[in-house]
Design a protein around this nucleic acid. Structure first.
Length: 420
RNA sequence: GCGGGCGUAGCCAAGUGGUUAAGGCAGUGGAUUGUGGUUCCACCAUUCGCCGGUUCAAUUCCGGUCGUCCGCCCCA
């Protein structure tokens, strides 16, 4: 049996990275008053069709959709925003006050060709801020994202920023873009020709050289922003500068999901190959209404955890959990006493690994050394007889005998010694 | 979904149309019946992702399939 294509096990050697990322994010999110929300992993298919947009690739060809035994069309969530918005509307979270700050973490599912940094089951941590159309909200979410990435020690990241304007701005721009591109239709790559009517904005970030050349002189969305959108975007940029968050304007940055308006941003890494985007997000003022709620402005983003962890592994950052004590014992009475001693020490807050092999002391010490433990606790026949234990510090080789009860009551001293 | 590379032990990795498939790391046992990080010895793939074909003979050649990686697409 094998894990199915596009899924993988996160093994104990790697899981420390995940815990570290989640703990760091949790702390920073809490500091900015975001509260966790846990929504179902599957939802009605219609939620994503309406929320994300039927014309998008995510909905059109990447969803895990099935009919359940009650004849309902169900889809494994391909992203987190639609579910959060659904919950916000259904559970009337707007009733709790003007602004709702939410975050989530968990698996998402998209049927794509797997590559490094792109699985079919992948994980995102994301944030949504409902109920404010203030540019300060946009900036706050970006700042939280950059703080998380920075706290993890990531370097070489670029924040790309754009505005896709309000709905009308986007419609006018779309028309102008199609008008500009249509005469060149034959020179565009096949994918882009296809997108010309379906989703022309996506042509802007084509990787095809010929297309890139044509697109270079295309009109810029920024010239099509209405007064409102322009004012909003200017304020976002000003506040980012005041926060000393550097960014790069990229008028070709478009988001793939239909719900985005105004600010769009991505944080990219140069160290990820084709899957460069670690964090993507923006404002989506139309989504809540689209899903049947009252018109509600909102901003949010999601971080791809697999990609983030690839970067952390490249940095060699590690946070392995290593025992304080490795317990070496031999002989029936000693083994029993060692078991009890180990458990009592754990209850006092020490990390204790018990050697279960029963093999020669030299072997047990060797394993103790490899475990990375600070000290070994040694019990043999003599110690069992006298109810004592040998405490051996592995770095210095210093060793002393004390009674088992002395060891247990020396908690404070031991903790000090372990921290040196 | 499209194009391409790769698939030998837990990990890294050499190799060949023909009796026993190098080596290193890790692991296990021993030298050392009670003291580690060094050293030495032994053991550790009847099998080369899987299925089929060619052949007297295939891990090696061919086809398919599965997986993975790179690019496209898409996206976090």
């Amino acid at each position: 049996m094998k894990a199915i294509r596009g899924t993988r096990d996160i093994l104990p050697d790697e899981v420390g990275y995940w815990q570290w990322v989640e703990a760091t994010a949790r702390e920073i999110l809490a500091a900015a008053a975001y509260r966790e929300i846990r929504t179902p992993i599957f939802e009605a298919t219609e939620l994503f069709e309406r929320g994300i947009g039927e014309a998008t690739d995510v909905v059109g060809k990447e969803m895990y959709t099935f009919v359940d035994r009650g004849d309902r069309s169900i889809t494994l969530r391909p992203e987190g925003t639609a579910g959060a918005a659904r919950s916000y509307i259904e559970k009337k979270l707007f009733a709790e006050g003007g602004v709702q700050r939410l975050w989530y973490v968990g698996p998402m599912f998209r049927y794509e060709r797997p590559q490094q940094g792109r699985q079919r089951q992948f994980h995102q941590i994301g944030l949504e801020l409902f109920g404010s159309d203030d540019p300060r909200a946009d900036v706050e979410t970006v700042a939280v994202a950059t703080d998380i990435l920075q706290a993890l020690g990531l370097k070489n990241l670029t924040l790309l920023l754009n505005s896709v304007g309000e709905k009308d701005d986007r419609a006018r721009y779309r028309q102008a873009l199609v008008e500009y591109l249509t005469p060149y239709k034959e020179e565009l790559d096949a994918d882009s020709q296809d997108r010309l009517d379906r989703n022309p904005l996506r042509i802007l970030d084509s990787k095809d050289e010929a297309t890139k050349k044509i697109v270079a002189d295309a009109p810029s969305i920024l010239d099509f922003l209405g007064d409102n959108a322009k004012r909003h975007f200017d304020r976002v940029q000003m506040l980012l500068s005041e926060l000393e968050i550097s960014y790069q304007l990229d008028s070709r940055l478009v988001r793939g999901l239909d719900y985005y308006t105004h600010t769009a941003f991505e944080i990219q890494s140069a160290d990820l190959g084709a899957q460069a985007t670690v964090c993507g997000g923006g404002r989506y003022d139309g989504l809540v209404e689209e899903l049947g709620g009252k018109p509600t402005p909102a901003v949010g983003w999601a971080i791809g955890l697999e990609r983030l962890i690839i970067l952390l592994q490249q940095l060699g950052e590690r946070s392995a959990i290593v025992p304080d004590f490795y317990v070496v014992s031999r002989g029936e009475a000693a083994e029993s006493q060692a078991t009890v001693l180990a458990q009592k020490l754990r209850r006092s807050g020490f990390k204790v690994e018990l050697d279960l092999s029963g093999s020669a002391f030299s072997k047990q010490f060797k394993r103790g050394d490899r475990s990375g433990a600070k000290a070994c606790l040694v019990l043999g026949d003599a110690e069992a007889e006298a109810k004592t234990v040998q405490l051996k510090w592995l770095q210095t080789g210093e060793q002393k005998t004390l009674t088992q009860s002395e060891l247990l009551s020396a908690e404070g001293e031991l903790k000090v010694a372990l921290n040196q």
